[in-house]
Every structure is written in C-alpha cells, then in structure tokens.
Computed example of a mutant assay.
Amino acid sequence: MTTTENRMITTERGAFNVRLRGDADGTPVVLLHGWPESSYCWQGVAAHLPDDYRLIMPDLRGLGDSERTLDDSAYTKQSLAADMLGLLDELGVETFALVGHDWGGATAQEMALAAPERVQRLVLMNIHVLPNARGNQAAQDVIRQRGAQSLWYQFFQAAPNLPEAMIPGNEDAWLGHFLRTWSREGFPDAAFDEYVRCYAIEHTPATGAAYYRCYKADTARWAEIAGTRFAMPGLYIYGRHDPVIIPAFTQHLDDVFDDIRLEELDAAHFVQEERPSEVAALIQDFLSPVAAG
C-alpha cells in the first residue's frame, strides 16, 4: 500500500508542510485544500488515485502545519499562488496538473493565470471562478436577495480581533458549525479531529481569518481580470447542495474557459471528503491524457 509522507519544506517565502504520495517520477498532481481544512482533506481521494501519480498536497499558509504569518497581505490569493509556485520550484516540479477546493481553488486559479505554461489541466471544486463576471454577478444577486445570511462567518472573521478573542478554546464548536452543517451526510470524525488540532495551533484564528481580511484586495484584483480566459482544459466538480457556493456560480463557465466540463455530485461543500471515490474517478478520467503523455 502506498503511504503518504509528510515533509516540512522551507522556501524563500516561508515554511510549508507538504503531504507527498505516489511515484516520485510520476505525473505531478498538485492538490490544494481550502478553509478551514488542511492537506489532510485529500487523504480519501489520494487513496483512490493511481500510484503512478506524484501527488503533492501542501498545507496553505496559516493552516494545517504550515507557517503562521501575522500579516493579512500574505493571504491574498495571488500571494498564496506565489507561495505554491515557489514550493513547486523547490521540489523541482516544472509542469503539473492542478486541483483546488474552496480557497485552494482560488489559489489554483491565480497559479494558472500567473504561470499558464506550467499548468497542464485545472480542476476546481466548490469555489467561484474568479474572472467569471456574469456567473459571479448572478450568484451575488441571489445571495443579496436572501440577505447574505450564509456569509455571516466572513463578516465575523473580517472584524478586528474578534476571532482571536472568541475562537481559542472553542475550536470544536467553531469548526463543527462549518464541517458538519456544510456536509450532506455527516463529516469524517478523524478529519474533524485533525482540523480541530490544527486550528488550536497558536495564531490560527488570526491566520484563518486573514483569508477573509484581505478580501477587499482580492475582489479589486478579480474585477480587473474579469473575462480573462484560462488556456488549459478545465474540470469543475460541484457539490450541488453547497449553502455558500450556490448553483448560480456555475453559470457562464464558457465565458472564461475554452474547454470546460461541469460535473455535479450529490454532495454539499466538502465534496472531496463526502464523495472521495467519485471525485478521484472524475480527476483520473480528466487527467488521463496528461498521464498518457
């Protein structure tokens, strides 16, 4: 049985924990997690992917076991993309397939925009497509009509000092709200315990909140790149019961992809943990031309 190796890798931009699995000479596949998780979220998917893939699963800055940086500007999705491209440089990986969920999906898109010649194929999961102005506007219109109630946690985390004051010691309750209510059929206990462990690491309430505290800078950039097209083939895997990334976000994907597939699963937000075998099968099928090449 193939095992997963954990390594702490230091680059010019910081120190990042990375889970590595599979053939070191195989097809590189980079998988990026979202908030409030870590690279642990890919364990189930990885178990269903071929051993001849070289799976590279980093913890993003401020989450998992990676560096906690107390500077909100370090968490713009462009900055996180630079982190990950630098990490891949350190690993000697030039070209790769790229998979991203939630904020990992936004980071993956920024990587694909910054270095399109390096990203062979792009898989996104339950995240808005950054340059998809029409689809994002349609979704925002629906969210506003509903009073934006589903976004309360974003406003909470943007408030100065509030997460730092209220989350420590309450990690189970804080994470339980999202991991257990944003899932269709429960959430794996081992994964939940792992994310509680990581969120209890000093400064994590602040670094987790930083993903949202830099939202003004992020959205200003995304307005500038509206309509920019992705050069590589894309696959969008969507859990149709997601309470935050609502179905309207999947509209008009053709506006920004020349080649895009949309696959909907009977899941909510955390598709990779709710439906790991199905997600793995979709990824493997989509990446088969790259692996064959």
Rank of each mutant, 00 (worst) to 15 (best):
T2Q: 13
T4F: 00
T4D: 13
E5A: 12
N6T: 11
R7V: 06
T10L: 00
R13W: 06
A15R: 14
F16A: 04
P28H: 02
V29W: 08
L31H: 06
L31Y: 05
L32M: 12
Q43P: 02
P50H: 02
D51Y: 00
D51W: 00
D51Q: 09
L55K: 09
R61K: 08
L63T: 15
G64P: 09
D65A: 12
D71Y: 00
D71I: 04
S79G: 11
A81V: 05
A82S: 12
L87S: 05
L91H: 05
G92P: 08
T95G: 04
G100Y: 01
Q109H: 06
A115S: 14
E117A: 08
V119I: 08
V119G: 01
L122E: 06
I127N: 14
P131M: 03
A133H: 12
R134A: 08
N136Q: 11
Q137I: 10
Q140P: 01
R144N: 12
R146G: 08
R146N: 10
G147T: 04
A148S: 11
Q149L: 08
S150R: 11
L151R: 13
W152I: 04
W152S: 01
F155L: 14
E164Y: 03
I167G: 13
N170R: 12
W174I: 02
L175E: 15
G176T: 09
T181C: 08
R184P: 00
G186V: 02
A190C: 06
E194N: 09
C198R: 15
E202D: 15
H203G: 05
P205R: 07
T207S: 13
A210N: 13
Y211H: 11
R221G: 03
A231P: 07
G234D: 15
R240E: 14
R240L: 03
V244M: 14
I246N: 13
I246G: 06
T250F: 04
Q251M: 13
Q251P: 05
D259N: 13
E264K: 10
A268N: 13
E273C: 02
R275N: 07
P276V: 02
P276M: 02
S277G: 01
E278N: 04
L282V: 03
Q284D: 15
F286W: 11
V290C: 05
G293V: 07
